[in-house]
């Protein structure tokens, strides 16, 4: 991957994204100012953001793969997946009320998450390697929040914005992967009692473990690895659904139970 931005520009854009994330306001997409910004620049900004959060005492708990299903790529108008980091500050318990006053455009999606018991190192990481290194899988709801105004963005800006990561909820029923046929796991996303999205896990790169392998290989390009004990979300099975205060969302999964959350002011 090749960066085009100098160190000063990366720090400036990182501060812009950090401000939008922590104070919940929308900013224009970064490519408005830097039209030739690359994916490598996006990841350099994201890495800077991660360092800042860790310096502030946030704990890195894992990673997320984003834009891994055709439904999501179509919704966002992009053609390749991306990754983002997850910290303890983004985690919310199931059955809780998630505040929306500190979010810009919150939307939810349902995913299969992996918890690893061995480190994973790319390049060349495969879905099989991921399954071997997995402690257990569980269902998750991800709350994504693009900080870009008017839903106008491109992949470079989204990557700099940490893949729109905002909040996540792990829960439901943990399972060993060898007891499941992951691609055929069905999922239903309900908002206020109505089914709004449906799909099966194969929607995520034919197999959710393939999305995790892709994530490990992107980490390798950045000179990093996925440590044992990581929590990794493999990407939305369905398109994302907008939420507002008062909404109640349930994700129901075959074999993996369900996760319920409410949204407040």
């Amino acid at each position: 991957m090749k960066t085009t931005l100098n160190r000063e520009a990366i720090i400036r854009l990182c501060e812009r994204v950090e401000g939008a994330q922590t104070r919940a306001y929308a900013i224009p997409k970064l490519t408005d100012e830097y039209p030739s910004m690359t994916m490598a620049d996006g990841y350099a900004i994201q890495t800077e953001l991660r360092k800042r959060f860790i310096e502030q005492g946030h704990k890195l708990v894992g990673w997320k793969a984003g834009l891994t299903s055709r439904a999501k790529m179509k919704q966002m108008g992009v053609d390749q997946p991306s990754i983002g980091f997850l910290t303890d500050k983004m985690s919310r318990p199931e059955n809780s009320v998630i505040s929306t006053s500190d979010l810009v455009h919150p939307r939810v999606e349902c995913e299969i998450a992996f918890v690893t018991r061995e480190r994973l190192v790319g390049p060349g990481c495969t879905a099989e390697d991921v399954l071997q290194a997995t402690d257990y899988v569980l269902p998750a709801i991800e709350v994504i929040d693009s900080r870009f105004s008017g839903f106008k963005f491109d992949l470079e800006s989204v990557v700099a914005d940490n893949g729109s990561s905002a909040r996540f909820v792990g829960g439901g029923r943990p399972r060993y992967v060898d007891e499941l046929d992951l691609p055929t796991i069905g999922a239903v996303l309900e908002k206020n009692g109505e089914i709004v999205e449906m799909g099966a896990a194969a929607a995520v790169m034919d197999h959710p473990a393939a999305a995790v392998a892709m994530l490990v290989n992107i980490l390798a390009e950045m000179g990093e690895e996925l440590p044992a004990g990581s929590f990794v979300m493999s990407g939305g099975i369905t398109a994302a659904v907008a939420v507002s205060p008062g909404d109640h969302v349930i994700a129901r999964f075959q074999e993996l139970g369900s996760i319920s959350v409410r949204f407040g002011e």
């Binding site: 055709r70 691609p183 055929t184 069905g186 239903v188 799909g199 099966a200 194969a202 034919d206 075959q254």
Partner: peptide, 14 residues
């Protein structure tokens, strides 16, 4: 039956 996934492949592709 309610939550069973249905995965459809055409000519080997999802």
């Amino acid at each position: 039956l309610t939550l069973a996934g249905m995965v459809l492949y055409k000519n080997g592709e999802l």
